[in-house]
Design a protein around this nucleic acid. Sequence first.
DNA 1: GGGCGGAACATTGTATACATTATTGCCACC
DNA 2: GGTGGCAATAATGTATACAATGTTCCGCCC
Lengths: 246, 246
Amino acid sequence: MARTRGGNHTKRTTDELRKRIVNGELPGGTRLTELGLAEDLAISRTPIREAMSRLAEEGLLERVRGGGFVVRTFTLEDMIDAIELRGVLEGTAARIAAERGVDPANLAEIKRLLDCLEGCFGGDAGAMNFDAYSELNARFHDQLAESCASPVIQHELRRVALLPFASPSAFVMARPDDAASYRSLVVAQTQHHALVAAIERREGARAEAIAREHARIARSNLEAAFATGQPGPDTLSRLARYAEQG
Amino acid sequence: MARTRGGNHTKRTTDELRKRIVNGELPGGTRLTELGLAEDLAISRTPIREAMSRLAEEGLLERVRGGGFVVRTFTLEDMIDAIELRGVLEGTAARIAAERGVDPANLAEIKRLLDCLEGCFGGDAGAMNFDAYSELNARFHDQLAESCASPVIQHELRRVALLPFASPSAFVMARPDDAASYRSLVVAQTQHHALVAAIERREGARAEAIAREHARIARSNLEAAFATGQPGPDTLSRLARYAEQG
DNA sequence: GGGCGGAACATTGTATACATTATTGCCACC
DNA sequence: GGTGGCAATAATGTATACAATGTTCCGCCC
């Protein structure tokens, strides 16, 4: 258990198992036994159980009849659906924000982040600050989720964004070269502006439609990452390898 | 622990705690301590922990920083949002089913359930079989969720429907008298028919809109149940009392 | 040869002791 | 009087022994 640091055994085990699942080391359908993992990680069964419970909460594991857990299967289609679902939920948050009105402080923060995102763009792909954009983009989407002031919607949105490669920042830099990524982000940022304008003007239907289409950039990037191969049971591991390469 | 029967300590504790939360006996914000519950239920801490993990999975409890759980707060607004969210997810499932096409066997089963639902209606409110309708309605919605053939969407839909009083069958009989309930169900059944027709004709946008509006019947019934009082921290317990009365 | 039964095994369920960590409140000190 | 730290307390974190429950596979009987 020296692989991942910090916290207690439960947290380390949770992180380690999450990593193995997203890596594809633990393929979908694998049954996890407490004893096996306890031996493997050289700790007792108690933190293993706790970690598996938390991963079931995240949706990475499924409880199986008669006790125990299996790794949930994530095919390419599942990831596409997860991204679509994130778009639907972000769209709902944006629509409700537009319909009910947003807290001024929240709106101000959203606009501030929008300005910061703008600052990441240079005149061309070479001058683009991709890392800063990725970080700010995540915060922008967080703030947007808060704008609807609904704990229930925020909660479920956070859940869906935890699914493998469904988060708003998962595919910011996924294009095969900087020029393609740059173009992709130009479109994304234009949508950010339009989304905020729609919310401010109380145009709920427009806000919802933009948020959905915005998420589909991620879908497009995901499909581009798989353009050369066919989806299959190794989807996650191939995607993880792809993500490592940059 | 003789209150709830069947299964092991974990299951009984899970059911017992769920009941207390939905009843309002454990108000939102209450911190649950393993030791306190263990003493109360006269069992050890282990099944208590396990039960709390599962309820966190259902969204009834929240993990708190530094360990432990608190009961999640469900106000009237939260329930309204949960119902809206269910409508959004059912709408997405219906839209995707229309766009991608449905499995013939699945469609046949949906139509069969639709016929059965039809059979619950008599000429007037007095002849209506409310219990049968409630049961069939739940199965109809289950089958509809399956029609999109997406494990991810089905999974999240099931989750949201688990939130207190957000399920499709929660408010079937919630109106103050049979005549009002009957009218409500006439509208609901008309929407069922329209929804199936839209899916069959591949009219995705229409299917989505109908499913959303369909869920808003539940919202209307929820608000009717609260017409006389103001929402507050006792929302859940008042609603539970209301549900008991019939 | 097929199906039933039972024993051996694997796995999860439960209790409990002990370790570790967070919280609380008091007291000394500034 | 306020603030810092320290001790007491209470909670969760962990390990482990034992119980209960499936599961599997082998042999027996039909």
